[in-house]
Amino acid sequence: MSEILVLVDHVDGEVKKVTLELLTLARSLGTPAAVWAGPGITDAAKARLAEYGAEKIYVEGSGDIVDFVVAPKAELLAHLMAEKSPAAVLVAATSEGKEIAGRLAVKTDSGVITDAVGLGEGFVAEQSIFGGGVNVRSRVRRGTPIVAVRPNSTAPVAAAGAGAEEQVSLMLSGSARGARVLDRVKQEKGARPELTEAAIVVSGGRGVGSAENFSVIEGLADALGAAVGASRAATDAGWYPHQFQVGQTGKTVSPQLYVAAGISGAIQHRAGMQTAKTIVAINKDPEAPIFELADYGVVGDLHQVVPQLAEEVKKRK
């Protein structure tokens, strides 16, 4: 079976969950080969990639790859596509992943599909568009399929691969060195799972009322082992950082469980969470549109309901 390149998403030497999902998907369609871009690969990371089915691990470990924005990773993948003739290339449908996919598609004259929530035979991708209103199946018809797959599209399943490491050395072009990263600024909020990858997300909106009150949302999130999200009203007000915004112009999440507290459920918010498997809403307005989506809803004051729920979760765990 032909090789399928999977670009590894990693942070501080650790492989992100979405990569294990991509390897799982790739295994059903070909032979997965992981591509590690940048310094910092560890034996543990290699073992993890092999555990989830990577037959090969291509490593280009130079700092240049990550010191310039996006272009070097696209160049690396283009180089590997020319050399290995893979059947397809998979990346995570993060903002950066999609940018890499876009540049790669231009470089290799290949079709690209973004935000796939499923991928089947013939690399036919499933997508959920227009804020979750329409389901689409689409495929690439020119070049090698490049597919950006959303986190949480499939459950990662281990199945050992050889994990044979192969060093790759890329001569970066001048063009790829156009945008230099001067500094990386971390504004993380505690050690919670990452928003797009989390199995459970607890989000707060305008109803939370203030930045301090977000501790109520964080309290429930921590009880559930969840990530924290926010509506645009909450990020605009400066109550929670922008990178936690869920919705049309924020992150798209597809967790197993999404809890929306003090969020009305505007279409732009729904666009980012409509594909969640189970939705729970807490809102004092019984007419709030979020209840149309909710599998379970509580009409009430979130400042009462959410802390009580958090206590109850802790008690029962």
Binding site: P286, G297, G300, V305, P307, Q308, L309, A310, E311, E312
Partner: peptide, 15 residues
């Protein structure tokens, strides 16, 4: 879905 009104036990019901 099921929508309930909080009667002081909304958190427990959600749990």
């Amino acid at each position: 879905g099921t929508i309930v009104k909080d009667e002081g036990d909304g958190g427990q019901k959600a749990a």
